[in-house]
Design a protein around this nucleic acid. Structure first.
Lengths: 117, 117
DNA sequence: TCGACACTTCGACGTATGTCAAAGCATTGG
DNA sequence: CCAATGCTTTGACATACGTCGAAGTGTCGA
């Protein structure tokens, strides 16, 4: 068996200390891996980069799907993963659902990857 | 089909501009995703953190396997992925194979995740 | 109330991934 | 040479993942 399959806990503070500062505990490693997995896909990277580069700060789900060239179902699936990892946030306004990048959480993720303390 | 399955090209300079600086092209996204995938596993995170925190700067394959609690075969598999992504380097000395963290490349990966330009 | 639209969830599919035992390769000591 | 040691490859397996069409859910205008 490859490993258990926990669900991400977005409420926790991303994880812990930088991985460069001593051995990472099993549990922390699992939590970190979940967040990195959320980012480790070409479609999700492009979705996130679109959101981060957006002038309005938000983009509708349909526009995102078209921009990355996947079906609405697939885009929705990926956006759900990003949201689950705390990397994006969504808000429904009328018929549309708008997504925003959670830049702070991405920065926090980046920090955990720091080489030193 | 989920997507093609390219092999990572470690010679390329990690990728490109920060994902926060405008839309990431399809190809760049694939390249970035491959490197992030290499990091997005609990075992590999722990291996890398062990190497980065190591006093001698290097650890033998066997010791790494034992430290993370997987078989030698599994550890070797994960270390090969990290090496393929340019995150570790290996060197054989006699019967043993020693691994080192490639901190510069991890830093470069971190840079690509930057929120702004 | 109904219909149309925007998005999400479900079901199914092929592929990729993580795991280990077993077999295969080096390298060294006898 | 041969055998033993240390690591990597191979083979096989179960699970996870990405994808889409189809069905479901929500919202608004007529």
């Amino acid at each position: 068996m490859p490993k258990p399959l926990p669900v991400i806990d977005v409420s926790s503070p991303i994880c812990c200390a930088p991985i460069g500062a001593g051995p990472v505990a099993e549990d922390d490693a699992v939590a970190l891996a979940l967040r990195l997995k959320a980012l480790a896909d070409p479609v999700r990277i492009r979705l996130l980069s679109l959101l981060m580069g957006s002038v309005r700060g938000e983009i509708g789900a349909g526009a995102l799907a078209e921009a990355v060239g996947v079906s609405a179902a697939t885009a929705s699936h990926h956006l759900a993963q990003l949201r689950n990892a705390g990397l994006v946030d969504s808000q429904r306004r009328g018929v549309h659902v708008f997504y925003r990048a959670e830049k702070d959480n991405l920065e926090a993720l980046r920090t955990v990857l720091a080489t030193c303390c």
